[in-house]
Design a protein around this nucleic acid. Structure first.
Length: 484
DNA sequence: TTTTGAGTTGTTCGA
DNA sequence: GTCGAACAACTCAAA
């Protein structure tokens, strides 16, 4: 009988034991379970995890190893194509079934399909469970039966039609196998950078389920109430900083949803704003699952005609935080140092790259992918297309962030800039977001020499704005002439 | 089928 | 300094 045979739990982006339907199903009726994680870089193609994400993955796996060992079913690590690795493992231990959590990115679903086929051929049953999202992204449809392309009606439909079930409790113990199968060892996955640049990341983050739960609890008890306003100020601890934990599945969205909505602050405007962000994550998954080509191409086809002006130098200046616009540079350096960037600043730097510098949004998306520890294909794609104006629910053409004004509004004292652009630390607040406007005496006494200690602005704001508006007009102009 | 209202996160200009 | 209007026209979603 197959229920006597052990079950494999194939961990992917669900590095937790709490609210884990696949683990729960595998371990049902006290069945023996063999957890495994398989590093399968080829499966993700162009989107295999970047350096910061791999760093995160390493530590998250270390935490999961400890956790599962304690529960009685140690995690096995393997490397290679998931389909073959799972078939091999099933044969080694005589497993009758494999359970995993579904992923919805194009590469994730393709990988799942290969696994399904290979396991079927080997006579092993396979079950892919929900768990990564609140709701299957392929189900919700508009009245005319097509996927949503606008957030608000999507969120409304989800709230109306989907009831969010109770999270499953973490298992108290698991029944592991008496004889362990061969493990390749965490170090041999080579997830850590060769040069140890991750020192700053270690200070900021505690990957793993426990770190995730602690951060969630602290957020719910503290900043949640004022999230709506405070989240916009990058120098404050007003946002949740849960994104990498959620991306790696250390927290289930269902757990986050329930803990937030049932907390003391659950009915506050802050909480409803935060829950709306969780629904944005669902929306991003919905758009990518239904329009998989958007991972590399604009959803609005007419944007193929956008007159981008690719420049290696400009792209590099942006990446390194040397554009001469302090709020942009601070954000880019925060990203480089911590593997994360504040949400408000993500919008500012994205708008700057795409509109002020006319660099293709794909280049920005790629850099974010390579440097963010929370890099998520659906959210990253949606965000960049939104910024570029070529995606679902796009920003209106005239929404071009003014990096000076945004700095003055959301970092009024310049604390965020001072932290990440230390060469400007002594510039008075009045000029911190536009040091080129400071009188020479002020610059001198702040120790700033423009062009030497800190760059001149790479483009002039109002000229760049006009240029972007003209470029956007080309897109709509090209379209109306085509339709004549 | 047609119509209608709305569309995460903004900026600038002129009164 | 503050405030409201203008900024393309289009697409989406629902009635």
């Amino acid at each position: 009988m197959s229920s006597d045979r052990p079950a494999i739990v194939w961990f992917r982006q669900d590095l937790r034991v709490d609210d884990h339907p696949a683990l729960d199903a595998a371990a049902a009726n006290g069945r023996a379970v063999q957890p495994v994680f398989i590093l399968d870089d080829s499966a993700d193609g162009a989107w295999s995890a970047g350096g910061a994400a791999r760093w995160w993955l390493h530590h998250s796996l270390a935490a999961l190893q400890q956790q599962l060992a304690k529960l009685g079913a140690p995690l096995l690590l393997r490397r290679g194509a998931a389909a073959e690795a799972l078939v091999d493992l099933a044969k080694e231990i005589g497993a009758g079934s494999v359970h995993c959590s579904m992923r919805f990115e194009p590469a994730g679903t393709a990988q799942e399909q290969r696994v399904r086929t290979a396991l079927a051929a080997a006579g092993v049953s396979f079950a892919a469970h929900a768990g990564a999202l609140l709701h299957d992204p392929l189900i919700l449809r508009t009245g005319t039966g097509v996927p949503y392309k606008v957030y608000t009606p999507f969120a409304k439909a989800l709230r109306m039609q989907v009831s969010i079930a109770e999270p499953l409790p973490a298992p108290r113990s698991l029944h592991g196998l008496a004889k362990g199968a061969a493990d390749c060892g965490l170090e041999s996955l080579e997830l850590l950078p060769r040069i140890d640049w991750a020192g700053t990341m270690r200070q900021w983050w505690t990957p793993g389920e426990r770190g995730a739960q602690e951060r969630l609890a602290a957020f719910v008890a503290g900043p949640l109430r004022d999230y709506g306003d405070a989240r916009d100020y990058p120098a404050m601890n007003g946002c949740s900083s849960l994104s990498p934990h959620i991306h790696w599945g250390e927290l289930s969205p269902r757990r986050v949803w329930c803990d937030v909505s049932r907390s003391g602050a659950g009915k506050t405007p802050g909480a409803s704003k935060f829950l709306a962000e969780i629904l944005w994550r669902e929306f991003a998954a919905h758009v990518l699952a239904n329009f998989p080509a958007t991972e590399s191409r604009p959803l609005r086809a007419e944007f193929a005609k956008f007159p981008w002006q690719p420049s290696k130098d400009h792209l590099r200046a942006w990446q390194r935080g040397r554009t001469g616009y302090p709020i942009v540079d601070a954000g880019m350096r925060q990203l480089w140092a911590t593997g994360w960037m504040h949400n408000r600043v993500r919008m500012i730097v994205a708008s700057f790259l795409v509109k002020h510098m006319l660099q293709p949004w794909q280049d920005g998306a790629r850099w974010f992918w390579d440097t963010l520890c929370d890099a998520d294909l659906a959210s990253n794609t949606l965000g960049w297309q939104w910024s570029a104006g070529c995606g679902a629910d796009a920003a209106p053409y005239f929404r071009i962030f003014n990096p000076i004004l945004q700095g003055e509004k959301f970092d009024p004292s310049g604390a965020f800039v001072r932290k990440w652009v230390p060469e400007l630390a002594k510039v008075p607040s009045e000029f911190i977001h536009q040091p080129w406007q400071a009188p020479p005496m002020v610059l001198a006494s702040s120790g700033v020499v423009l062009g030497e200690t800190y760059p001149h602005p790479i483009v002039e704001h109002s000229a760049a704005r006009d240029r972007a508006l003209a470029a956007l007009q080309k897109v709509s102009g090209a379209k109306s002439s085509a339709s004549l």
